[in-house]
Amino acid sequence: MNHLDLFFQTMRAFLVGQIPIDTVESQLGPSSSGSRRFAFYRTLVRNDHHGFMEKLYGFTQDVLQDHFSGCVSRYLTAHPPDHWEPNQTGARFPEWLRHDSEAILIAPWIGDLAQYEWFEFVVYTDPTPDNPVESGLSLNSTMRALKFEFDVPGWITSGRPLAEPNPGPARRDLILLMYRDSRTLQCKFLEATPWTQLIVTSLENGDDPLRVATAAGADAETATQAILELTRVGLLHNTSS
């Protein structure tokens, strides 16, 4: 193994916290700048990784408080950052949290909360164009349909994350439609009703939502009003004249 290969192999292990600086120095030799400065790089990398997670998961951090840092460390050990886009560091955190016994003990709904925060970022930065290209009725292309087991969206909008003492969101199965409003470019969400789901699914399948809704038993007036409302809030685009 040449010097450069050995250097990277050893530094990788050190920078992710697998070996201490003493081991690095015994394998590569000391830095002429001294051990303290050499070891500082582990602190910098750790701070960078934790910093990205704190920016992405502010509410989750508020809930886990002093436990958040430990959770992030365990998560990063399980999933070392493997993408050039720094925010991708946190992509698997919601799913990981659902299985982390320490986090679940503090807040059984913590995975749902992290999922909300992650997709708020994903939708906000979604690369698909905001202007619909098709003519007629179309679905906002930034929309994500997400399953929740707790009413995290309601809890967040009612300001509960800041409440003391904090009861946490109520247990309730729901499907949330998160999307970016093409007029404000802000992330919005809407709890899916059966009719909303029917309209969304019909558009995803390339069907006429009005025809599908009426075939499912809705009267034309009710279905039309539902479509108009979804258009008003920006989940649907209507470019027909």
Partner: peptide, 22 residues
């Protein structure tokens, strides 16, 4: 600099050895 090695991104600007090889 380098900011990744062995499929891990460190997300920091890390110095290389100042060597001809590097």
């Amino acid at each position: 600099c380098y900011s990744s090695a062995g499929n891990v991104y460190f997300h920091d600007l890390l110095p290389l050895p100042f060597s001809e090889e590097a």
